[in-house]
Simulated scan of single mutants.
Amino acid sequence: MDNSPSKKVWLKFKRNKLAFSGLIFILLLVLMGILGYIITPDSSPNANTQILPLNKKKPGSTFKFIIINKNPNIKAVGFFERMLNGQKSNVTSIPITSYRLVDNNVFITPYIGDEGKAQEIKYKLNEICPRCTPHSKLGTAATLFEQYNVYEKTYWLGTDIYGRDLLSRMILGIRVSLSVGLMAVLISLFIGVSLGAIAGYFGGRIDAGISWFMNVVWSLPSLLLVIAISFALGKGFWQIFIAVGLSTWVDVARLVRGQVMALKEVEFVEAARALGFNTSRTIIKHILPNIAGPILVVASSNFASAILLETGLSFLGFGAQPPMASWGSMIKEHYGYIIMDAAYLAVLPGLAIMLTVYAFNVLAIGLRDAFDVKGQNTTV
């Protein structure tokens, strides 16, 4: 039987059903974020297909479309490129209420909203459906037109104010939130672990100087600090990584400083110094592995904080810029509809933010209990 410390931590973590459910939810989000355009109903770049007559349609709405043009110059991309960047549509289609075929003509009634009915538009059948010839062996012209040029689409979460598929943009928003959270946590870990370990190990004036700097950053509101950094770096997606990372490292540094101060006088660290190991090796190889548990806990908590900061920045216009899909920007675009008949436009991304942050918080609590951070006895 494997009685390793990591095995014991994992078994203890699994017994916490809420934390384990949070982990499963996060892994599901990661999978959806990786697959991206492969699973989105709208696979165009940024899921930015705008159909204005279909704006603010309720979840579950189904509409009939007719393809009126095909662009052979747009080539299909490979699987991985489509997964990462999407696929430009090679057809032009419009929503309709009805259509009818008369001889070699197609009379289409476009959908212009629930309030009125548009006039019919006439198209040449052989222009929009070259296969639909009267003497085709594949079937009648009506059958071929129905097969190749008519389709239905269901908007499972409805459409936004621009007529874009909300489900597709919600899925792509996962990428923004998780990628910002991941990069911000990596940046905060690099800065926080480095400064905290140096301050805790050397002490004295070095500790006093680093601690003063940490207290100054700690005293600044996180959102205001991120906005100030964003002003300096400019608006954009990549700038958010740096801005959020530079605002969340203090928690890590304070934790690491305290843990290193507690460990630097224990026997195995004294033995490492007596054997002539240099300072960096002593810290990296002998001290940091013994405080990995508390670092993981604070990293998970910072992940949730980074997601909240990113959504706040996007809501204020400093985060991911249109047409990139972001949960924060989706709330910004639709918060006015909360008191109207389309509250779901802001509620759904808000619910996604809430559930994701909650999942990371319960994961942090589960890790804290599994590693027994409060009562942890450090062993060699």
Rank of each mutant, 00 (worst) to 15 (best):
S4Q: 06
P5E: 12
S6G: 07
S6I: 12
K8P: 13
L11M: 12
K14W: 05
K17H: 13
A19E: 03
F20Y: 14
G22P: 01
F25R: 04
V30C: 11
I39Y: 07
D42H: 11
N46D: 08
A47V: 07
A47R: 02
Q50M: 12
L54R: 15
K58M: 11
G60A: 04
S61V: 08
I68M: 05
N69V: 05
N71A: 02
F80D: 07
M83Q: 07
G86Y: 04
G86H: 06
S93E: 15
I94L: 03
Y99A: 06
R100Q: 14
V102D: 13
D103N: 15
N104D: 09
V106T: 07
V106F: 05
P110Q: 00
Y111V: 02
I112Y: 03
G116M: 07
I121L: 01
K124D: 10
K124M: 07
K124L: 08
L125W: 02
E127W: 09
P134Q: 11
S136F: 03
L138W: 10
A141D: 01
A141C: 03
F145M: 01
N149I: 00
W156M: 12
G158Y: 03
D165G: 11
L166W: 08
S168D: 07
R169W: 07
L172N: 04
V176F: 01
V180D: 12
V180C: 07
A184T: 12
G192S: 10
I198D: 04
G200S: 06
G200R: 14
F202P: 04
F202S: 00
G203S: 03
R205D: 05
I206C: 01
W212M: 12
V217A: 08
S219I: 00
L220F: 05
L223D: 12
L225N: 08
A228P: 05
I229G: 06
S230V: 09
S230P: 15
S230R: 06
G234N: 05
K235Y: 13
W238T: 08
F241A: 04
I242F: 06
W249Q: 03
D251L: 06
K264I: 00
V266W: 02
A271N: 05
S280A: 14
I283K: 13
I284L: 14
K285S: 13
I287V: 06
L288A: 03
P289E: 03
I291T: 01
A292W: 15
P294V: 00
P294C: 01
N302K: 05
G312P: 14
G312R: 00
S314T: 08
P323A: 07
A325Q: 02
M330R: 03
Y335K: 14
G336R: 14
Y337A: 09
I338C: 10
I339F: 15
L351I: 13
I353L: 12
L355N: 13
D369W: 11
V380I: 11
